[in-house]
């Protein structure tokens, strides 16, 4: 199941791994919401996973750095790390071409 990154009706499934509510995780979530609203309005879902509550997932999902954003859909799965403040890097990382 590999769908090309089109602007069509596909759903983006994103997961943000954090560890507690730190300024960095709050910033990451805010940055993510902003980018998604700008580029993927109406076709994305964000799940925030707090690894302090679900530590097993850190192992299972191979999380090392916090915050980590995981693009679960569309495949292939991609991971990017950091507070998502560098919008251009986020767009590249998520394979969303930056606006010209």
């Amino acid at each position: 199941m590999s769908s090309p990154p089109t602007e069509g009706g596909e759903t983006w499934e994103l997961r943000l791994y954090v560890a507690g509510e730190t300024p960095r995780s709050v910033a990451a979530l805010a940055n993510l919401r902003r980018i998604c609203e700008e580029r993927l309005a109406g076709q994305y879902s964000i799940e925030v996973i707090d690894l302090l509550e679900r530590p097993q997932l850190a192992r299972g999902e191979q999380i090392v750095a916090i915050p980590t954003l995981e693009r679960r859909l569309p495949e292939p799965v991609r991971k990017i790390i950091g507070d998502l403040s560098n919008t251009e890097r986020v767009l590249i990382g998520l394979d969303l071409r930056p606006e010209r």
Partner: peptide
């Protein structure tokens, strides 16, 4: 086993290694 795959990782800003700490603590 901690798999750190360089090609999968893009840096988008500040981070820490809390994930590692959590795994180790677990």
């Amino acid at each position: 086993y901690v798999r750190v795959d360089r090609e999968q990782i893009d840096m988008t800003g500040d981070f820490d290694l809390e994930g590692l700490f959590i795994r180790l603590g677990l």
